[in-house]
Design a protein around this nucleic acid. Structure first.
Lengths: 193, 193, 193, 193
DNA sequence: CATGAATGAGAGTTCATTCAT
DNA sequence: GATGAATGAACTCTCATTCAT
């Protein structure tokens, strides 16, 4: 209970001020505890960060794995992946922001494991894209580059997305998917009358 | 001379460890000075950050302004904008990374001015995009959203671009531009036989 | 407890070396703490000074107010005021010395409030003196000047008074009072045969 | 020339902010030099202070010696001593303030010599007072105490005297002298019918 | 004479963490 | 569980001083 609250709060403050810009005092104050009391719930500040990064990435992987393993056709699969990703990014905005921005604050020893996991996550995206190309739904493109492009669009959302914006997360996801799918359209589709 | 070296070095370390994760000691060590000596060349750590952010953003604005004011046709204009932007992002990678990631470490008082400038920069991008739509070269889209998408793709490069990668900056820029232009293609163009 | 000890100790060292000549290290060492530990009890070095100045001045004002409001006759009132003032100056010598010497080390923002309070204090003295003149116990004199003279005599004690001196505080106070009262004697008394 | 200007300026700033509260930078800035350049004219900050204290005290001693050695009658001698002392205190207010307030900032090694000199100075005052008592112009009093009282009145002037005040230095000196002389009047004079 | 650059020492302050209560 | 107190380490920054130019 308390632990969850601390994690959530930490994510929020980490997002705003960065890991190194946030003090345990900041977190303690935000959860109405003394900073000494935090240590009943977490091991250390670094541990807090690790927990958040793991939690964030694990959730994303789990969700994307389901989509990847589904038997939707490529367009639908991409759309679903984007929807879910955007869904998480917007619903757990703080967590996502920490994942994307505070990776470099990880202790060198734990970074390796984290990178591996992140590579796995990106691998799922590439799998989806490569699948679409193999099924000839998408035109042939440099897959890693394409994955960077798509992830760039989506990840960048953490810098501008606001809950109270004009469009819902799903709407945004779908507009982006439309944009992607056009970019991915097989030339044949475009040119044949 | 020394000042330039300090700024450059600071940008590099800020990028790696973040503003708050970087100590003046770190910077001093990297430029072979005592930390006290740094203060002959800069006013404060915060001043260092401000200088870097200004330098980075001013350069980008200046370059983009030229493109925006040129009389290239919309496709070419977009291509040129992307090329130049990617060019700067890759040539001054540290500077760009600091601009994109360390904005939140700015003192609250200086943040306002910076935001204004950043808004101006994004305005230039939107101008280019809106111009393309008005000239009916691009299909009608939500311009802010589109600008976020494009800037997302390009900005995200700071997380994965390596000087020694297989493709040059221009090649990457052009591949992205192609992707964008497809996404922006007027439906009429696509569908008419 | 600790806080009181720190304040007391700080007053002592501030007196000896001056505010700027005293380091937090000095104070910490004198109270057997690490300097970081001081900050559990005080906000800042400047806060320490402010607290001391306030404490000192408030005490003096309170005591002098009582005398001022009493219905002693003018001579007795002056004698009582001097006794109490000297009493405080000698019993809280460090505090008094800081009050009198370290005023200029106050932050500019807090100086204003302090000056106002000090003016109030001097006003009480002038009230007593003016009262004596109006009652024709004292000869007519330039009241502010007289107050400076009297306060000069008494305040200067912080530079030479030693607890182990030959005379007690009350004795000193009374000798000074006698000196003052002669200086204040109405001419009539002197000249009439 | 420059040296004199530096000394004078230093005295002014020392007075305002105290020795330890003043940086060489402060002084350099006030005399329009770089702080490194100061060292062409003075040996060290401590040397600066020493020089000021010596200069101030030597001047006072010299002047008081003349009065002490003169053959004025006691009242006149006291009046003259006060006039000259007040004259110096007001004409060289910064210097005097430094003398009176910054003694404690002297290095321990040089303090001894300075104290000796100061004692000599106070001895001259006591000589004048004792002379008046021996000549039976002044009533018998505790001479050291009396000297502290008189010096207290006069020294305290540095805290309140302003050049643009209503009364001139001589007027102030004389009013104080009158006050002192009354306090010193022989009782015989008063009481004899 | 003047100065820009450099520096070792140390300033005040904050930090994450520990521990007795 | 919670917390007040404590601390060693590290932080940003300033200091008086030196020296090559």
């Amino acid at each position: 209970m308390q632990r969850e609250k601390i994690l959530k709060t930490a994510a929020h403050i980490f997002r705003e001020k960065g890991y190194h810009g946030t003090s345990m005092q900041d977190i303690a104050h935000a959860v109405n505890l003394q900073k000494a009391s935090l240590y009943h719930h977490i091991e250390s500040k670094q541990d807090l960060l690790l927990e958040l990064l793991d939690q964030a990435l694990d959730g994303l992987i789990e969700e994307l794995s389901v989509v990847f393993a589904s038997d939707l056709d490529p367009d639908q699969k991409l759309r679903e992946a984007v929807r879910r990703y955007v869904g998480r990014l917007t619903e757990h905005a703080d967590l996502a922001a920490v994942l994307l921005l505070e990776y470099r604050s990880l202790d060198p020893d734990q970074r390796g494991k984290h990178i591996t996991k992140r590579d796995h996550f990106e691998g799922l995206w590439r799998g989806i894209l490569r699948g679409g190309m193999e099924a000839q739904s998408f035109r042939k493109m440099d897959v890693p580059l394409l994955s960077f492009a798509i992830l760039g669009v989506l990840n960048w959302m953490i810098t501008w997305y606001r809950q109270d914006g004009a469009k819902s997360a799903v709407e945004l996801a779908d507009e982006f998917t439309d944009f992607f799918l056009r970019g991915l359209q097989n030339d044949r589709g475009d040119l044949s009358p």
